[in-house]
């Protein structure tokens, strides 16, 4: 057997670490990615309803405008803005930019602030024009 699979030390288990901005944002990217995947199925439902005629679309719109619908939409919009901002952060890392640990911490907080801000602005504008 190749040596690479032998005698490899096990890293300390995840649970012994205190949550840090880096690790929390990392798992949040994954969670929002999964949430957005489920969200794309709801967007598909919305479009299929629209193509099925005025009645089906009205039913879909009713459902989206309900308490549960708005709650899901709120979760979806924050997921989108967070995943979008953190995705840009990921792409910068892929270019080799911003990899110093202090920078990673700073951009992490910026990402949270921008994602939260965009969510807030989107909902304020949406309610204003409703």
């Amino acid at each position: 057997m190749p040596t690479a699979t032998q005698n490899r030390p096990l890293s300390p288990h995840l649970q012994i670490y205190r949550p840090q901005i880096t690790s929390v944002l990392s798992i949040l990217h994954r969670m929002t990615g999964v949430a957005l995947t489920l969200g794309t199925l709801l967007i598909a439902y919305w479009l299929i309803a629209a193509a099925s005629g005025a009645e089906a679309f009205a039913a879909a719109q009713d459902w989206i405008g309900s308490f549960l619908g708005v709650l899901l939409l709120l979760a979806w919009s924050f997921s989108l803005f967070y995943h979008l901002c953190n995705g840009v952060r990921h792409l910068a890392w892929d270019l080799g930019l911003g990899l110093e640990i202090e920078t990673v911490t700073q951009t992490g907080w910026v990402t949270v602030a921008v994602a939260g801000g965009l969510t807030l602005v989107a909902w304020i504008v949406a309610f204003a024009v409703w």
């Binding site: 299929i48 629209a50 193509a51």
Partner: peptide
């Protein structure tokens, strides 16, 4: 397969609209 199906269905829907 599920994502492909819903992806195609949503694009067909956009074209129909």
């Amino acid at each position: 397969l599920v994502l492909a199906f819903f992806g195609i269905a949503s694009i067909v829907s956009v074209l129909m609209i």
